[in-house]
Structures are given as structure tokens and as C-alpha cells.
Design a protein around this nucleic acid. Structure first.
Lengths: 339, 339
DNA sequence: TTGTAAGCGTTATCAC
DNA sequence: GTGATAACGCTTACAA
């Protein structure tokens, strides 16, 4: 590999000048500029990014921490991030935290030890305090999917409560009055926010919240299957179930069907996330769209702006989800509410 | 940040000795070793990985190129890779190629300009020749999902033909004789291999291949919907359709149902990939399992072994897929073959 | 076993 | 505008 030194010799200029034309960091005569450029071309010169990093204290890399990689959700998020960053010649380093506090911290430290210029964190186990403390460090970061009071500017979040609210409201407006709820784990903020939205909609329609119709799932398919089994076994009647995410909705649908219930005639279902597969279910799932690609893109823009000084974009910290109404909600005649 | 120099001063030893205890690169007295260690601890010393890279000519990073990020398939692959590499303290840089030759090459060059120690490539647009040429370069790499004669050792592949074969055979053995086939794009090797397997099974059962019952899809949902629409419109009778991947199978199922066909009574369906959502369809999709997580892991091991000299694992270049039989295949009584 | 010193390939601060 | 030259923080012969 040719080095900057060889280029400078061939072009008959100094190292400094070569560096200048590479980085447009100072004025250079068009003539010497051309000399340098053609010397580079002749040698097939490629700057060594490691040496650049060492000298400039910039790695042009941003570290990403996600809970997992195998579902469609985080892939979509990464997609939004990568596209935005790549076009700015930055690259993306990926690590997974498995929703485990120790692993998340380990991942963050790993990324920092790699000298990432910035971090994008989708963490759920680590505490707000830890994250607020991180802000004091030398590595800038943005948190996706959480709103932390002390560092609100660093957070890109979805209005989960609103999502839970419109999911439930969609059912209420179609005449449902006996609503079950399969929640995410209560130690996760977003799970609680969605549940809060559910309760809010219920209250607005004067429908009491029945603790017996609530099941705490795990945000995975298994949470949905367990949840539906629980609801059926319990015997408290319900005409609809809102699931705190699509994975659980899918699991719940399978169990409902196996139990002889047809959807949406016997039980309506609404999910949350609008995962790529949610229109492959039968019936196609009505759900809340989570614009995770856009949010990933926004996180990337935050970094481009705040870390690499590439401005021009407006940063939005809170995204509003929307109802995607497909075929899993039945309308109950207003005159005959609930089964 | 403390540097190695400060550590050496505090410990009262030379730079070289500090470096030695960091890397276990040579014998050091237990006593001086402890001095160094406690000096490190006292200063909260963290080695600068960039400086290490520059000096050692190793970045401890491996570049990954995938066609896309938003589905579940590549996420699962990344999951296998990341887990394996991370435990060896290597990190993963991700880029996407969009199945476009120019973008794929651009991605590869981008990763190489980042001085990755090795590459894992899931490319479909780039030619075999290009890849064979790459082998001459200074960056080792492994190709997933292709078997290239000149560089067979660098390839981790699935036996696609066998997969196509067992998919079709499963139908044949259950009495189906009129089989439709929704293929992947013919410019993709794996698509053709799967189709070849299909034809092989057909031949084995003495069933002629009917070109009119074949549709060339795009490996996406839309390919499945177009394919099923085509098959229905054409009017050539068929009792089953094998789809070259699950996305298309899902699309085909939706269209079939909308057209009043029930699955598997009117038409049996088999997919390929065993994506995470394939048991969320209704009926649950029978499909061919693609062990992409394992293959990703194997690619990572290849690199650990061939690039980082961390041996111990046996490298397998060819994986055999298996049938996952769920509920989308109907058995036709032997005495009354085909509708 | 430990130390010395020469790189690694850039960027950046000065002078000129 | 251009050129010396000192960092950047580490690894690694080679000596001792």
C-alpha cells in the first residue's frame, strides 16, 4: 500500500500538502492540487483510516447496541441507521445486550474501548442513572426508545402511551367493552407506558379496568401464547385482546384458533409494532405502527449533527405511532355491546 | 485518558514491559507483572485500540456485507456471527449491498478501506470472477450462500438443490402430482439450485415439469402474490405450490385465500427458509429450514481460525437443510391422485 | 526478564 | 500557499 509519504515524493510536495488536498483543510493552489491528485491516482493511494484516526482522534465509527438481532424489529432500525450514516462515510459497529444489565454495560464499554465517535443505544436493563452518568463521559450518545428526564435531548422515543391509547380506543369505538390486555414485562418502561395508554382509553369510555383480564407477558411469542391460555382458562369473558406487541399478538392468535375461537368473530386482536410479518397472519393483524426505521434514521442524524457537525436536519425527539387497521378487529353493533 | 507511558512510569518499568503484560506476548516476572497491573488499575488505564491497530496492523474488526437488514433472515445471520466474534473480542462492522453489483463492490471497498481484518460476504450481484480475484488481495474473506469453484474453501453454503428436492419430494410423497413452482430470480444462483432440486424430485417420481406452472418471482412477498395470481389466472390445475422462499409463500397464501382457495385443502404450500414468522401464518407453513444462524457462526469460526489463529473448530462448508413439516401440506389418498 | 528505540501513517502546529 | 516536524499511543525487533 502506498503511503502519504510516497505520494508526497512523487508529487514533489510535502506530507502536509498531501494531507491538505485529502481533507480540503486549507487552500492549495489548483496546480499543486492537481499534481497531488495525479500522484495519488498513479500510486493507487488509499489513506490508512487507522492512522487518520490516531492522528485526528476520530474513528468515523458509531457504535450501536441493540437487545437482539434475530427479529425483524432491530434489523429495520439498523437499516435506518446504516443508510444515513453510510452516506456520510461513517460506519456502524454492532453489539447486542440481550436485555441484561451486565451485558448492556459490557457492550457499551466494548464500544467505547473501540473509540467510537458516538453511540446509539437501545437498552432496556440499564438504569436511567447510569445513562445520565454516561452523559458526563467523552462519548456522545443517543438513546432510542426511552425518555430520560435528565438527558431528554439525547433521547429519541416513541409515544408509547399514545400508542396504547389508540390501540384500545380502536376497540372501544367499535363497540368492545370487555377488553383483555397482554402486557410486556413490567420492568420495561415502554410496556408500562403502553398499559397506561390502555387504561386511559378505558377510563375515557367509562370502562373499568379488570385486573383479571390482564396478563404480564414477555414481549415474545411465548408471552402471547401463555397470555391467551391464561385468559381462556380464567373464564372471564372478553371480546377483544390488546397485545403490547406483535410477537405476542401472533402467539395469542395461534392459541385462540387452536382453542376453537375464530378471529375476529369471537375475539378481536390488536398488536403493536407493525412488524413486517403482521400482514401474514390470518386474519391480517390490526396493529400500531412503530416507525422504527425513521427513528433509527433520526438517531443517525442527531449524531451527524451533534458529533460530525453535518447540520441541516431538524431533530425530533418524540414520534407518534399510528393505527394500521387490517382485519383482526370486529365491529360490534352499538345496540348490542359486548358478548 | 491514561496512556501506556504513564502506566510504565507509575509502575517503574518500560513501555515494552507494560505492553508485554497487556498482551501476554512474553514472559514477565510475576512481581513486575503485579506492579504493572496495579498501576493500570490505579490509573484506570484503557489501551487505545486505534494505536494498537496502527502498530500491530490488526484492527480486530471483521466487516460484514449483507443484501439488506430489515427482514428476519439477515438479522439471524448477524446474530450468529456477532455472538461468536464478540466472545473473541472482535467486532463487527456492517454494510448493506442491496443486491446491486455497484453497491456491493462499493461496500466491500468501504470495509477494506476500514482495514477490516477479514470479511464475511453475503452478496448476490457480484460475479464469481470478482470474488476469485478478491482472494488475491490482502483481506481474507468468506462467502456465505455461494459455492465458487476457484475458492471453495472460502465458501459456507447451503445445499439449495437438496432443499428444493426435499420440499418437492414432501409433496410428491403425499400424493401430489400437479405441482406449481414460484421461483426466485433466475440470475440468483440459489434460486436456480432450488429449482433444479424441484425438477430432480419431479423426475424421480416420473412427473413432467410444466413450464406453465412455473413463475419467476423476486424472493419477496410481491413475488408470491404475483405468482399465485398468475397461476390462478392461467387456469392450469395444480394441487400444490412450492415457493422458493417463505416471503413468497406468505404472499402466495394471502392471494390464494383471497381467491377463495383454502389451504391446504385446495392447495398445499411449502416454503423455504423457515423464517421466524413461518409459524404465524395460517395454516402454519411447512417449509425448509435454513440454518442461517449456524452458518453465520461457522463463517465467524472460519475467520477466528484462519485469520486470528484461534483454532479448535471443524469447518463445515456445506449445510444440509431439513423439512419442517407443519400444516400447509395436505395428504392426497393414493387411489385418487390430484384434483 | 527487561529496556531502548524505531516504526506504524496520518494530522496539526508552527514557521517561512 | 507550503514545508518541517512534533505528536497520536502503541508494538516489536534488538540489545542488554
Amino acid at each position: 500500500m502506498a503511503t502519504i509519504y510516497e505520494v508526497s515524493r512523487l508529487a514533489g510536495v510535502s506530507l502536509a500538502t498531501v494531507s491538505r488536498v485529502m481533507n480540503d483543510s486549507a487552500r492549495v493552489t489548483e496546480k499543486t492540487r492537481q499534481k497531488v491528485l495525479s500522484a495519488m491516482a498513479e500510486l493507487g493511494y488509499r489513506p490508512n483510516s487507522i492512522a487518520q484516526s490516531l492522528a485526528s482522534n476520530r474513528t468515523n465509527s458509531v457504535g450501536i447496541l441493540v437487545p437482539e438481532l434475530h427479529g425483524p424489529f432491530f434489523g429495520t432500525m439498523l437499516s435506518g441507521i446504516e443508510a444515513e450514516l453510510r452516506s456520510a462515510k461513517k460506519h456502524v459497529i454492532i453489539t447486542v445486550g440481550h436485555s441484561d444489565e451486565e451485558k448492556e454495560i459490557d457492550g457499551i464499554e466494548f464500544l467505547m474501548s473501540r473509540n467510537c465517535d458516538a453511540l446509539i443505544l437501545h437498552v432496556d436493563a440499564v438504569s436511567d442513572d447510569y445513562l445520565e452518568g454516561l452523559k458526563g463521559g467523552r462519548t456522545p450518545f443517543v438513546v432510542i426508545n426511552r425518555s430520560i428526564p435528565g438527558i431528554a435531548d439525547n433521547c429519541i422515543n416513541l409515544d408509547n402511551e399514545y400508542g396504547g391509547y389508540i390501540a384500545t380506543k380502536a376497540l372501544l369505538e367499535r363497540g368492545h367493552r370487555k377488553l383483555a390486555y397482554i402486557s410486556g414485562p413490567h420492568w420495561k418502561t415502554d410496556a408500562n407506558e403502553r398499559l397506561a395508554g390502555h387504561k386511559k382509553a378505558l377510563a375515557e369510555f367509562g370502562v373499568p379496568f379488570d385486573e383479571k383480564l390482564k396478563f404480564e407477558g414477555d414481549f415474545h411469542e411465548s408471552g402471547g401464547t401463555s397470555g391467551m391460555e391464561y385468559l381462556i382458562r380464567t373464564g372471564v369473558p372478553f371480546s377483544a385482546v390488546v397485545c403490547a406487541n406483535d410477537d405476542m399478538a401472533a402467539g395469542a392468535m395461534v392459541v385462540a384458533r387452536e382453542s376453537g375461537l375464530t378471529i375476529p368473530e369471537d375475539v378481536s386482536v390488536v398488536g403493536f409494532d407493525n412488524l413486517i410479518f403482521s400482514h401474514f397472519t390470518y386474519p391480517q393483524l390490526s396493529t400500531i405502527d412503530y416507525p422504527i426505521n425513521d427513528m433509527g434514521q433520526m438517531a443517525a442524524r442527531w449524531i451527524l449533527q451533534n458529533v460530525y457537525e453535518r447540520g441541516g436536519h431538524e431533530i425530533r425527539n418524540l414520534f407518534k405511532p399510528e393505527l394500521v387497521d387490517r382485519a383482526s378487529i370486529r365491529t360490534i353493533a352499538a345496540t348490542a355491546p359486548g358478548p
